[in-house]
């Protein structure tokens, strides 16, 4: 599968969650908070806490622990509260 994290190609396997892929890539955080700019990553791991948000294919606020990677996914760090990228 062709998956990138912040522009860099990253090995991915079928059924892997975005959070597992990021942790396997030695990333422990992939978001910073809106007010304090503090790093966040996985917390509850089961879709409850919304801490592990990440941008996938231009769409922000995707829970990395719930989203399963798909071929072609472009995953990137989320900075604070983001709006979806304009679609052409």
């Amino acid at each position: 599968m062709n998956v990138t994290v912040d522009g860099e190609p990253q090995p991915a396997r079928a059924g892997q969650t975005v959070a597992a892929l990021l942790l396997a890539a030695a990333r422990v955080s992939w978001r910073d908070t809106r007010a304090g700019g503090r790093p966040r990553g996985l917390f509850c791991g089961i879709g409850v806490c919304f801490d592990c948000l990440v941008v996938v294919n231009g769409i922000p606020d995707v829970r990395a622990c719930q989203r399963v990677v798909a071929d072609g996914d472009e995953i990137r760090t989320q900075h604070g509260a983001e709006l979806p990228e304009a679609r052409s």
């Binding site: 955080s29 966040r40 996985l42 917390f43 509850c44 791991g45 089961i46 622990c65």
Partner: peptide, 11 residues
Amino acid sequence: PGVVTAGAAQA
């Protein structure tokens, strides 16, 4: 980051 719930580690 790195502080998670027990359920997260389990999942």
